[in-house]
């Protein structure tokens, strides 16, 4: 993927976090409408979208900082791959957290 597409997704994921994160905040803090959102069937979907967008935005931000701090063209490629693997691991962990939260086993 070219750098322009990666960074465009950075902006798009930022806007997605703005919407889904706001819903997440309202659902957890406002008593009336919040509980209604919290019990809705679509709320787990909102959380999954928030998790995906947040992980992408956050790790891409960390990647940008690391690329600027560690010089070298090979270093940039290595940082991208390491961050990508870390992201996959965190995404699987996050999905597992949601599974336990909304559909607990037993």
């Amino acid at each position: 993927m070219k750098e322009s597409k990666r960074m465009f997704l950075h902006y798009v994921s930022g806007l997605i976090i703005l919407v889904t994160g706001f819903i997440h905040l309202v659902a957890n803090n406002l008593p009336g409408i919040g509980t209604a959102i919290h019990e809705s069937i679509l709320y787990p979907l909102n959380l999954i979208i928030l998790l995906s967008a947040l992980l992408y935005h956050m790790l891409n931000g960390v990647r940008a900082i690391l690329i600027e701090l560690i010089p070298g063209r090979c270093a940039a490629k290595a940082i991208t791959w390491i961050i990508f693997l870390v992201g996959i691991a965190l995404y699987i962990y996050g999905l597992q957290v949601f599974l336990n939260l909304f559909w607990p086993v037993g």
Binding site: E3, A64, I67, A76, T80
Partner: peptide, 9 residues
């Protein structure tokens, strides 16, 4: 321009 050290930094 579109590399890791190009305009997106």
């Amino acid at each position: 321009i579109d590399s890791e050290h190009g305009c997106w930094r």
